[in-house]
Design a protein around this nucleic acid. Structure first.
Lengths: 218, 218
DNA sequence: CCAGTAGGCTACTACTAGTAGGGTTACTTA
DNA sequence: TAAGTAACCCTACTAGTAGTAGCCTACTGG
């Protein structure tokens, strides 16, 4: 009877790694479409074709499951932007441009993953020493590093501020163009570049005037 | 007995308007410090010194209560930024500068209110036609309008994009400087202005070259 | 062929959002 | 001053969900 039931419902034994990925896929979809709060663990379990205690076995808590989903998405996003930028080492303008473009393309091509990131605030602040926080920090640090290369003589605090500002601008713009198919990733990148690049170029000159030695002679 | 109990617990009749404000004050504090999810309606009711059904009488649901809190905060923030900018009509640079400064000062002076806005995503998307959505839109429109005056010949879509980018930058920077007392509102404003104002100035010139007539002769 | 372990389950508990239905106080109107 | 009424407020419930206890079962290696 039990065996028949299991066979009928299509449940099958799986290795831990497989199951984890399967669960993450389902959870990502459900969290993204229905929202974190409106989704119950029973619901996810049912869709996976598994019982609730298994979710707890693998992810510890509902928050832990969301965290795992977010970590996966953040890693993908970081990977997409860094590799796009890395392809243009030595040309700061193109580096920045292509990094931004990769960001907006990611939002377009992985709408569901992107939507998930909006639920991030539901869990940020809970555990600040999580791996997720690490990816968030890395995204900021990577941006900052890119700016440091372009503006070698600029006040470090200012570089940090610029990096945060750019990331904030990206996030909000990605949200803004979500329901506007006419605003392509290319166009929104162009807008953002128009807003910041002339300033950054000017900053190079200003920093250069402030500390000419290190650049001319170093 | 019932009367004695009520007197002992300090409960007192109040007009609806008074109670609403009292509840909003308590809810704002608790939501901001503990987070939306971790807060129970029973908890808020206990702190107010009232029973749970009254909260539902006044605000309909837990989400409704959060929404009411957020609306109040958004209104205050919008009021702060618009009035700061309005004081400098005719000088776009100062207008923008003072608007940003007012934003960051608001974050500093109303830490609790600002922290609350981070829970916004818990409720945004639920009801998009709420009053809250109205305030969010107004903030963007106000910024856009300010830019339109400064850059009269710029593509409207670009203005919209700039406004969204600036607001996104503000929000993220406010978050960033939350735990850094050394980064004053003045400094963060200066950083952001350094990132965008040179570009905006250049944009004036570019748009001017593109459509000189309307500016020179209109 | 027989442990041992890893994957899995049913059946609970505790807590919280939201409601039903009724009591009490203050203000109005005669 | 005495209904009458409306607004404020309560206790005591229901429904549903996060999380757990304790047991079962299928594959693995000897």
């Amino acid at each position: 009877m039990e065996i028949a039931q299991r066979a009928a419902s299509g449940r099958k034994r799986m290795s831990r790694a497989e199951r984890e990925q399967q669960i993450l896929g389902v959870a990502e979809e459900v969290f993204a479409t229905r929202g974190y709060q409106a989704t119950s663990m029973d619901d996810i379990a049912r869709r996976v074709g598994l019982s609730k205690p298994m979710l707890y076995e693998y992810f510890g808590s509902k928050e832990g499951l969301l965290l795992a989903c977010l970590e996966r998405v953040r890693r993908e996003l970081l990977e997409a932007t860094t590799s796009a930028a890395a392809a243009n080492a030595g040309d700061p303008e193109r580096q920045l441009h292509d990094g931004l473009l990769a960001f907006f393309r990611f939002g377009e091509e992985h709408k569901q993953s992107w939507a998930l990131l909006r639920t991030e605030s539901a869990v940020v602040g809970a555990g600040l020493d999580t791996e997720l926080e690490g990816f968030r920090t890395q995204q900021a640090e990577f941006t900052e590093e890119m700016l440091r290369v372009a503006l070698p003589n600029t006040d470090p605090a200012r570089l940090e501020a610029f990096a945060e500002a750019i990331i904030g601008a990206c996030e909000r713009m990605a949200l803004w163009r979500e329901n506007r198919p006419e605003i392509t990733p290319e166009r929104v990148t162009e807008h953002l570049m128009a807003l910041i690049w002339p300033s950054l170029s000017a900053e190079v000159a200003a920093a250069h005037r402030a500390y000419p030695a290190s650049h001319d002679q170093g």
